[in-house]
C-alpha cells in the first residue's frame, strides 16, 4: 500500500430531483451530503451503513454512474489524473477501463443468453481493447483461471452455475479489462456463508496479484472487519466516522458506530441482550433531521446536536469523526 490517494473526494454532494413543491420550487433528495474521503492506492476500503444511508450512491458517484451536484472527485493512479466530476467524453471511456464495479446479485447480473466466455469478453469488445478474437480469448482464459473458473465452463450458460460460481464469473468480467479500482457493492450479500468466505478470500488474493484498490460496500460489519484495511461509516448521506479497521472496531468514537457494532448478533448464546439498542429507524433522506442527522436516535444527544451540524474533524492522522462529543464518549 502506498500513501498516495487513488481516489480523493472533497465535499461531495449527490442530489436527486423529487418533483416540485406547490409553488414550483424544485424538491431535492440529498443522497450524499458533504462527504470527503481518500482511498489510498492498494487499500481495501470498506463502506458500511444501513439501507438508505447513501453508500451505494457514493460508490456510483465515484464511477460517474450517479450525478454530482457539487464537490470534487479526483482519480490519480500515477499515470493519469481525472477530475471525475468534469471528465470529458473521451477521458470517461478510458476511466471506465480503470474503475469498475462488481454487482451484488450474481443471478441478476449475468445475461442468461450469453455463454460465460461471451459474458467475460464483452467489456473487451465494447471498449475495443483487443484486435483479434484470439487475443480476446487469451485474456478471457487468463482472467478466468485467476478467478478459479474451470476453463471447460466457458462454453456453458450461467444457469448451469451455483451462486458462488456465478459471482466468480461476475468478478472475472469486472477484472478482464485490468482496472485499478473496483467498487464491490454488497458483492457477498447474496451468497451463503460457506461460499461467502471463498469469494472474500478470492477478492483478497486478486488484490495482491493484480494490485487492485477496492471500495467494498457492505452492511455486514463482521465481513468488513475481516477483509478491509480501513472503514468508513455512513448515516443518512453523511460520513460519521472513518478509521483503520482495528481502530474503528476497538475504539469507535461515534455513537452510531457503537450502536452498529453492538447490534451484531453474538455467536455466544450466553451473551444475549447486552446490545446497546438503537430506538427507531433511519429517517427519510427526503426530510432529514436538523443539526446532527443522527440526533433522533442518538442515546447521548444534547441540545447542541439538534441545532448544529457537527464538523468532520480528525481525531488523529487516520481517524476522523463527526460528533460533538467524540471525546466525551464512555470507554468501551
Amino acid at each position: 500500500m502506498t500513501e498516495t490517494p487513488l481516489i480523493k473526494i472533497e465535499k461531495l454532494q449527490v442530489e436527486f430531483p423529487l418533483g416540485r413543491t406547490l409553488f414550483g420550487k424544485p424538491l431535492k433528495l440529498r443522497a450524499v451530503n458533504n462527504v470527503s474521503l481518500e482511498i489510498m492506492s492498494g487499500q481495501f476500503f470498506g463502506l458500511v451503513g444501513e439501507s438508505g444511508s447513501g453508500k451505494t450512491t457514493l460508490g456510483r458517484a465515484i464511477l460517474r454512474a450517479a450525478p454530482l451536484s457539487s464537490g470534487k472527485i479526483n482519480f490519480d493512479d500515477g499515470d493519469v489524473r481525472y477530475d471525475v466530476g468534469s471528465i470529458s467524453k473521451s477521458d470517461l471511456k478510458n476511466y471506465r477501463k480503470l474503475a469498475q464495479l462488481i454487482f451484488q446479485d450474481p443471478y441478476a447480473a449475468l445475461s442468461p443468453r450469453m455463454t460465460v466466455r461471451d459474458i467475460i469478453a464483452e467489456p473487451l469488445e465494447v471498449m475495443g481493447l483487443t484486435k483479434t478474437r484470439e487475443e480476446t480469448d487469451k485474456l478471457v482464459r487468463e482472467i478466468a483461471a485467476k478467478c478459479r473458473l474451470n476453463l471447460e465452463h466457458l462454453r456453458r450458460f450461467p444457469h448451469a452455475f451455483s451462486g458462488g460460481q456465478r459471482q466468480r464469473i461476475s468478478i472475472a468480467r469486472t477484472l478482464v479489462c485490468s482496472p485499478d479500482f473496483v467498487v464491490a457493492d454488497e458483492s457477498v450479500a447474496a451468497l451463503d456463508v460457506s461460499i461467502q468466505a471463498d469469494i472474500l478470500n478470492l477478492l483478497k488474493s486478486l488484490q495482491k496479484e493484480l494490485g487492485l484498490t477496492y471500495l467494498f460496500i457492505s452492511h455486514d460489519l463482521s465481513v468488513v472487519a475481516h477483509i478491509c484495511d480501513h472503514v468508513a461509516v455512513m448515516y443518512l448521506g453523511t460520513l460519521v466516522e472513518s478509521a483503520p479497521t482495528s481502530d474503528l472496531f476497538t475504539n469507535p468514537r461515534h455513537p452510531y458506530t457503537r450502536a452498529l457494532l453492538s447490534a451484531i448478533p453474538s455467536l455466544n448464546p450466553d451473551d444475549r441482550g447486552h446490545a446497546q439498542k438503537l430506538e427507531g429507524e433511519i429517517p427519510s433522506p427526503a426530510n432529514p433531521p436538523s443539526g446532527c442527522t443522527f440526533h433522533t436516535r442518538c442515546p447521548m444527544a444534547k441540545d447542541i446536536c439538534r441545532t448544529e451540524i457537527p464538523q468532520w474533524r480528525k481525531l488523529n492522522d487516520k481517524h476522523s469523526v463527526s460528533c460533538h462529543f467524540s471525546e466525551d464518549l464512555p470507554k468501551t
Binding site: S162, S194, I195, Q196, A197, L221, S222, F249, I264
Partner: peptide, 25 residues
C-alpha cells in the same frame, strides 16, 4: 465448516476458511 467460514469479530486476524466446493444441484 459453517462456523469456521463465519467472520468473527473477536478473531479478526484469523483467516476465513470456506467450506470447499459448491452446494450440489
Amino acid at each position: 465448516g459453517l462456523l469456521n467460514a463465519l467472520p468473527k469479530l473477536d478473531a479478526l486476524d484469523q483467516p476465513l476458511t470456506p467450506v470447499e466446493g459448491d452446494i450440489p444441484s
